[in-house]
């Protein structure tokens, strides 16, 4: 199959060079391009995204932009739904 055919490659052989670097609470993590911020956080062991109005730990629930449980701070923007935003090089995320 042609290498230009979209959706053709598996991610398995992807080299570190194609990974995107983002900062989560000041720590650097490498994530695959195209990943949502919520997926990147969970895949890297960040289990808690925010605390509720009474202080309970919470994380992504619906995965589709509906529940607002996945709110984090991204590049200074408060309260962004992390499941609806794709990772970008150099992005700074605060949970």
């Amino acid at each position: 199959m042609s290498p230009r055919f979209p959706g053709n490659g598996t991610r398995r052989g992807e080299s570190l060079l194609t990974m995107i670097r983002i900062w989560v609470n000041g720590a650097e993590i490498l994530v695959e391009p195209g990943s949502s911020v919520a997926a990147a956080l969970l895949s890297n062991g960040v289990a808690v995204f925010r605390h509720s109005v009474t202080g309970e730990p919470r994380a992504a629930l619906c995965g589709m932009g509906v529940c607002f449980e996945c709110l984090v701070q991204i590049d200074g923007d408060l309260q962004v739904r992390s499941c609806q935003v794709a990772v970008r090089e150099g992005m700074r995320v605060t949970t």
Partner: peptide, 21 residues
């Protein structure tokens, strides 16, 4: 049901489709 790690069924599917390992 509010514990982190409890998702909707389609919710977890959507997260996996958006890159969750």
């Amino acid at each position: 049901w509010t514990l982190p790690g409890v998702f909707g069924a389609g919710g977890l599917q959507a997260l996996v489709k958006s890159g969750l390992k």
